[in-house]
Design a protein around this nucleic acid. Structure first.
Lengths: 209, 209
DNA sequence: CGATACACTGACCGTCCGTTCAGCGCGGTG
DNA sequence: CACCGCGCTGAACGGACGGTCAGTGTATCG
């Protein structure tokens, strides 16, 4: 059966509310984003949100899942096919910087969810639904690193540690870019990260002038 | 004049309350830490806190300043004297991992303050008092990197970007250590970071088996 | 030992926010 | 045109939390 008219309206509302939630949470942070403001941003009454989401928790959860899915799609797309480790690393970093550059607001949502707030019950639930998303991302990169190590392209090191180091380090640079008035071109920062990780920053003693 | 008895009692109270605040904020996060719970943790009534701090904001601010000062002292101590860049880098990383390992609770406070929560007015104030502390840390490391670049020990790259990348990357590893039941010895993770940053992770084509 | 000072207490107040629900308007139907 | 169903509304409710202050206990002093 095709979508009924009700379904279309319903989907539209759900989407409007989620988009509003992303914008408000991005502006105010997870804790300070109120249902009232999300409703206003979506152009509906506060009560309407509760017709589509059981409570605030479900709204945040569903919204986050939708949004993070988008990011993961982008990163996976960047990794399609295969190439040298260097190529793949550069592709992932470019995709990540690009995504956050285009979705500045979403970046703050991403961060708000990183460190859970609220009562311990809320925290537990948030952890259950959001942590796996982060884990998946770390594991994905760790897998690629492992592959490169097996292929002899990369030194054998703890892949999970390295993945964490890379992801968080690059996120710090994204944050800095967002705070800058005129950030350097993306490619420049990608190059900084890729060359640092691959070749390190030290100048070998033999080559010093 | 020496400290009067009142001063001693007063200092003791201020300290108890700040220590309680650190513990509660570490457990619950910045937004969910209530004055009531901080008071209970400190073994005083809620009203008592307001005899020593104007309001919640001042309590958080002063507490953070005290706590972060401790960390900076440790990191500065690790940098005293001079040595090669590698030695100094290793010293800083060792000090940081050690500090957070001994002060696991403080680590979450540190993170809660990283991404401000609350109304925009609160955010602005928090930013004003806390951001400079982080900036100081980044700038400190950036200075050391710059020095090493001028000395020809390190490739010329944007020192600020590198400092951010290093600090956040290593913090990710600290976070992972805190979550692990039996983390590897600190020195192992320090070595991972130092060797990755200095020499990179790639195996040069000429050396591949 | 009674009076005074004062640190401390915790019930109380105002505010804010998530959640509810009685009612409103509007499109569809007979 | 009258009636009905239903998506939507927003005032009202309840609970939580920051902040207050009249009252209490205790140490100190004359």
């Amino acid at each position: 059966m095709a979508k009924s008219k009700e379904d279309v309206v319903s989907e539209f509302r759900v989407q409007s509310i989620q988009e509003a939630a992303i914008r408000v949470i991005s502006r105010k942070g997870m804790a300070a984003a109120t249902m009232q403001e999300i409703a206003e941003e979506a152009g509906v009454a506060k009560g309407t949100i509760y017709l589509y989401f059981r409570d605030r928790e479900e709204l945040v959860e569903k919204t986050f899942e939708t949004a993070i899915g988008e990011l993961h799609k982008r990163l996976d797309a960047a990794l399609e096919g295969d190439g040298t480790f260097e190529e793949r690393l550069r592709a992932v970093m470019t995709a990540q910087l690009g995504f956050f550059n285009e979705n500045r607001e979403f970046f703050r949502l991403y961060h708000s969810l990183r460190m859970p707030e609220g009562t311990s019950a809320q925290q537990r639930r948030q952890k259950r639904t959001c942590q796996p998303q982060f884990r998946a991302r770390v594991d994905r990169l760790a897998g690629i690193l492992k592959q490169a190590m097996d292929a002899g392209e990369v030194r054998p090191l703890d892949p999970k540690r390295l993945a964490l180091f890379l992801i968080e380090g690059s996120i710090a640079i994204v944050l800095e870019r967002l705070a800058e008035d005129a950030p350097p071109p993306e490619s420049e920062d990608v190059e900084l990260i890729v060359s640092t990780i691959l070749g390190g920053i030290a100048i070998p003693k033999s080559k010093r002038s």
